[in-house]
């Protein structure tokens, strides 16, 4: 009976891909030795788009570092792709609020950077350059930057750089994409445009995405599952599945259901803030 249940879950791609079990983490350099996160438990299924929202300073970035193996928890377990995380996970791509392009490389060479690090691409890159370049150009076209690869990142606008940053995070076909407020520094029109880019990338690549954000509308529009975090030390105070059918159109952000969801999330965050 139970094995049948797991089989069913596997068939639907519902295995947990990222799991944090009762995780507590204190940074070695924290002055007050107050944990950044405490007793944090969450599960993100394979192929799912998860969003994590919370008041500022709640340890969302810590969560990202834990899930990618850049930090290891003081207590608890982090499991990614069925394995306990004991080293940087290598199957992750990351993008941040700051696009962090290397100014001496062209846009295309910036996108190819992860391939110079990650195996098996690292040893194949030189001989199969054309193949990888074609792939990078395909990604650029997907995010609406067709034919811009030869330009330097500082010749691109902030929104364009953020698109490039997404391409760089996806070039090595990661199983897990970690986004730390990637659209936080953009104007609202560009941001909505990039939501759609992100939505289409997720639909095309079947990658598990964890998005950390302050923007509740962003979380509600993009995610299948939303986690609300408390103020520091962070833990999950609410988990909410988002049932809007895909593909979603920007118009749904003006429906009463959407407004109700955002309102509900806002309530959780307000509570989390008061709890300090």
């Amino acid at each position: 009976m139970q094995s049948g249940f797991f089989l069913l879950m596997a068939l639907y791609g519902m295995e947990p891909f990222v799991e944090l079990h009762d995780v507590t983490h204190v940074y070695a350099r924290a002055e007050d030795s107050l944990p950044a996160v405490r007793s944090l438990t969450l599960k993100v299924n394979e192929g799912e788009f998860a969003a994590i929202v919370g008041p500022s300073g709640c340890g969302k970035s810590t969560l990202m570092k834990l899930a990618t193996g850049l930090q290891f928890p003081v207590e608890g377990k982090v499991i990614v792709g069925g394995r306990k995380v004991a080293a940087p996970v290598k199957l992750a791509g990351m993008a941040f609020q700051n696009p962090t392009m290397l100014p001496w490389r062209t846009t295309l060479d910036n996108i190819l950077l992860p391939l110079e690090i990650v195996e098996p691409h690292r040893s194949r890159l030189r001989r199969h350059k054309a193949e990888y370049v074609a792939k990078a150009e395909g990604l650029l076209a997907q995010v609406g930057l067709k034919g811009q690869g030869h330009r330097f990142p500082w010749q691109l606008s902030g929104g364009m750089q953020q698109r490039v940053s997404l391409c760089r995070a996806l070039i090595h076909e990661p199983k897990l994409l970690m986004l730390d407020e990637p659209f936080g520094a953009l104007d609202s029109f560009t941001r909505e445009e990039l939501w759609c880019v992100m939505r289409d990338l997720h639909a095309a690549q079947k990658v598990t995405i964890v998005l950390v954000t302050h923007d509740l509308r962003e979380a509600a529009f993009l995610a299948d599952r939303i986690f609300c975090m408390s103020a520091r030390p962070g833990r999950i105070v609410a988990e909410r599945e988002v049932g809007f059918p895909r593909p979603r159109d920007l118009d749904i952000t003006y429906t009463p259901e959407f407004a109700a969801l955002v309102h509900e999330l806002r309530g959780h965050i307000a509570q989390a803030r008061q709890a300090v």
């Binding site: 080293a87 290598k90 990351m94 941040f96 962090t100 290397l102 690090i117």
Partner: peptide, 21 residues
């Protein structure tokens, strides 16, 4: 930039990779 370092370290880059790249 720490973010750049995170991006590369999450890919399994060694200290040497980061210094030279």
């Amino acid at each position: 930039e720490p973010e750049m370092e995170d991006v590369l370290r999450a890919l399994g880059a060694s200290k040497r990779d980061i210094v030279f790249k």
